[in-house]
Amino acid sequence: MTTALLEYKNVHKIFNQNMVLKSINLIIEPGMVVGLLGKNGAGKTTLLRSALGLIEIDTGEVFTLGANPTQLNTELKSQVGYVPQQAFGYEGFSIREALDLHSSFYCEWDNSLEQDWLKRFELNPDDMVENLSIGQRQALALIMAMAYRPKLLILDEPVASLDPIARREFMLDLFDLSLESGSGVIFSTHITSDIERVATHVALVKDGEVKLFNELDELKSSIRKVNFNPTQTINLSQFDILHQTTNAAIISGYQNEQIPDALHISSLSLEQLFVELHA
């Protein structure tokens, strides 16, 4: 029995003869905010959906709140919040009707959070859901996933259509949720600066594998780009080499030491790291 909110143990998934998820090992504990980074098609959505039992894995195990995600009981389901990449549902309802119905499924519902968010996103309760803009639908989906203070929040590009102000407000609410309720969050996004603000951990997915999973602070402190002369043989054996080209290497495990023959050693933003690892 695990205390982790979400755990992947050696998970594999194949779709149409393609290995879409490979050897996934990941643990999310309360208080963690995990930013999931990866190119489109890298496997992020599959990863997230397998935590909800929406996709069945082929080998390995997933534990969602300690249970098999395909067999979550009502109690456990009420502790998981999910926002999919494309918001859907409640067409034919007004916002008010949709929220009334949705909130009726949950014992806990933070009415003041709901009211705050409606105001903040300028959502008129009488508007019909199918007439909302993408951004508004996304905002509604966020309200619906967060208002019952879930223990585990799974977000698939939740803010892609939100403006910087709305994203900022969302981030502040994420802090409240994860810290005050001891919840855990995993969210995928392409906005690396959001991850840099909000996340405690970063998972980088490439070709179905988790290439990197670390505390964000640790990542920034220990990862460096080292430039060197291609004609000289440089010794980087004391480091973990994440990526190497003829004149540069991305290393991990750096502790401010001197590197002989290095022309330049630089730290990287998450965006730069992402680009370099895919070069």
Partner: peptide
């Protein structure tokens, strides 16, 4: 600067 190579706590 969240995108700096330096962790935020360090900044």
């Amino acid at each position: 600067n969240p995108s700096s190579g330096d962790p935020i706590y360090k900044q």
